[in-house]
Amino acid sequence: MQQRKTSATPRMLGLDRRRLIAAVGGFIATPSIGAAWAEDGGVSGQYQKVRREIAAGREIRIGRVALDIPRLAESGNSVALRVTVASPMTEADHVRAIHILSEKNPVALIARFQFGPRSGRAEAQTNIRLATTQLVHALAETSDGGLWEASTEVVVLLAACLDGS
């Protein structure tokens, strides 16, 4: 029987749920969120290279940077990111740039924002792509040459339903 009305009895509901889970599990191979950690390879060499280039031998200190990004991303296609650096943003003391780096994307440098005293605040918001669960870093460069960092691990969930539409 290809087409059949569904029953509403509890017994049928249980059966249907098991079938549903089996069926969905069948077409996505792994039926749990745990699969998000499956690709737990190393940090890309490109990430390390870009990070070294930005640092140029300078010490990177933790602090001053607030990286606002969800810990759990529903889709790697678009993850809202907001970064803010505490700074007076004066001619003498301001943030020159913020680099957004990914440890495991095919391209490590997601974005580089450039600011000046006329920016008012060292703050930017965008949406980023994440290939997999990983650490995202925001590195801020101040006008005195200082480097400050904030990092957040983002778990990227995988969708249950395929969609080639």
Partner: peptide, 27 residues
Amino acid sequence: YESRQGQLNIACSQCHEQNVGRKLRGD
């Protein structure tokens, strides 16, 4: 909405009425 469809033989209602709020992987 209530007819089973496709090779997986699932009706819309089986997900969207009988299993609303439950998780399907990350969904």
